[in-house]
Amino acid sequence: MTKVNVTEEINMMIPSDFRLMTDDEMASRYFTTKKPVAIYTDQTVMVDLGINQSATEWIVDDLEIMVSFQKSNIYNFYDDIEMIDQGIKEVDGKKAAYFEFISTVKPEGKSFRSQSPVKKYTYIQYMIVGEHSWVFNFSSPVQLQSIWQPQVINIMNSVIFLKKKK
């Protein structure tokens, strides 16, 4: 693991062999109108760690409300969810909500090609700091879950928010 300055405000540990994803890789893998703060990927470009700042403003006391919205979004985004763990914990002295799950996305029914469902292991952590909510998202193919599951908790627990320089 290597300590990385994700932004001027955020430090965290990431796997040593991860690198920043290129803009072209981001565009081909993620369809979003707002560019994430950072997405790191492994050498195979199959395991990703994304950091993003939400456009919606929340206050720290709203974390439990935000969790219910985010849980609903997770269940609506995928065809099937097998929730492994979820809850609220403390990271860097701040409350963090998390969801750990296996998702399934089924292929389009009208496809001419025979495709298998795509299953991923995902760990998403939400933190509200100041007026902003931060999203830390780790995903890998489900076949790599046993390799990454022990490490992802250390990655997510390593997030540190630094004081802004004036």
Rank of each mutant, 00 (worst) to 15 (best):
I74L: 01
P117E: 06
Y121S: 10
M13L: 13
V129H: 01
V91G: 06
M127N: 03
E57R: 15
T56W: 02
K120E: 10
K94S: 13
A97S: 04
A27F: 10
K71V: 08
M21R: 05
S72Q: 12
T22D: 04
Y78I: 01
Q125G: 11
Q115P: 01
N73Y: 08
T104N: 02
A55N: 07
Y78C: 02
V60L: 05
S116K: 10
Y78P: 01
I14S: 13
S28M: 11
M13V: 13
E108I: 12
S103M: 02
K71N: 12
T44V: 07
M13W: 09
F77D: 08
G93E: 08
N76D: 12
D23K: 11
Y121F: 15
I88H: 02
I102K: 06
D23Y: 04
M26P: 04
S103V: 03
T122P: 01
G93I: 04
I81K: 00
N76M: 07
D24S: 15
T44L: 13
Q43R: 15
V118W: 00
G87K: 01
D48R: 02
L63F: 04
I102D: 07
S54R: 08
N73A: 15
S16C: 12
R19I: 14
Y78L: 02
P107S: 11
G87V: 10
E108R: 03
Q43K: 15
T44K: 13
K94G: 12
I74C: 02
A96T: 01
S54L: 15
L49S: 10
M66G: 13
Y126I: 01
E64V: 14
K89H: 08
M21F: 05
K34S: 15
T22I: 09
V45P: 01
A55I: 14
Y78F: 10
I51H: 04
Q125C: 13
L20P: 10
K35M: 05
I81D: 04
S103T: 05
